[in-house]
Amino acid sequence: MHRLKLIPLFLVLAACLQRTPEPTDLNFRDLGTPIYSNAVMKPDALEGDWTQVAAFTAQPGGCKPGKVRFGAPQGGAVPVRADLCLSGKRQGYDGRAALPAPGRLILEGAGTTALAAPWWVIWADVDMRTLVIGTPSGAMGFILNRGGPLPSDRLKAAREILEWNGYDLERLQVF
């Protein structure tokens, strides 16, 4: 009789053991594919307000598009204020980004959030109206635009660049 009472307990324990753990480190790109940053981009070209128009996500939805404001470069850094939707979660930052190489930024003191991954500008259109930001780790990727809605030709170019850098376009959410 006591054995019959233990069966439901064992079934519950077995069900818990079979659950797949939630991923802790998201990766949106094939790490075997090289990633390239824009080596000719000048930091002062970033200055101004940018609207997030797309981001990679594990599941669509979650939050509305965000914004990034880059200030004027100061030595080897640039002020950054970011409020982004990354993988369906709102993430913010207000501080400085180090500029270790052209087209690369590292947000100082960003902690362990996705924002702490080095930001690589993997593409910018000629007139600096659209930026594509990626990370070597594939932890995040997003598209920024300024001056109104993102035209379809620049979205197409941004998608091609992301794909060329190994990103899984199936997981790109356009806002």
Rank of each mutant, 00 (worst) to 15 (best):
L84S: 02
L86F: 10
K67S: 15
A72S: 08
P65Y: 09
R69P: 00
N38T: 07
D30V: 00
D25V: 12
N27Y: 00
Q91W: 02
K67P: 00
A45R: 12
A77Y: 09
C63N: 05
K64V: 14
P73W: 09
G71L: 08
S87H: 15
K42T: 08
D30A: 10
A45F: 08
K64A: 15
P73H: 10
R81Q: 14
A54L: 09
V68C: 12
T57W: 03
P43K: 02
N38R: 01
E22R: 13
D83L: 14
D83H: 13
G32Q: 03
F56D: 05
R81A: 14
F56I: 04
F56E: 03
V68P: 07
A39E: 01
D30C: 02
F28I: 03
G66F: 15
V68G: 09
L84Y: 05
F56K: 10
G75I: 07
K67I: 15
A39D: 02
R29E: 02
D25Y: 04
I35K: 01
T33A: 10
G71N: 07
P73I: 08
L84F: 01
D25T: 14
D49K: 12
E47C: 06
C85Q: 04
P60R: 15
A54Q: 07
V68E: 07
T24W: 10
Q91H: 08
L31I: 01
M41T: 04
V40S: 06
G88E: 09
A54C: 08
T57R: 15
A72Q: 11
F70T: 11
N38W: 01
D44T: 00
S37F: 04
A54S: 11
S37H: 13
N27R: 14
R29V: 00
G71M: 07
V53Q: 12
D44I: 01
F56C: 06
L46K: 02
V40Y: 03
K67D: 12
P79F: 11
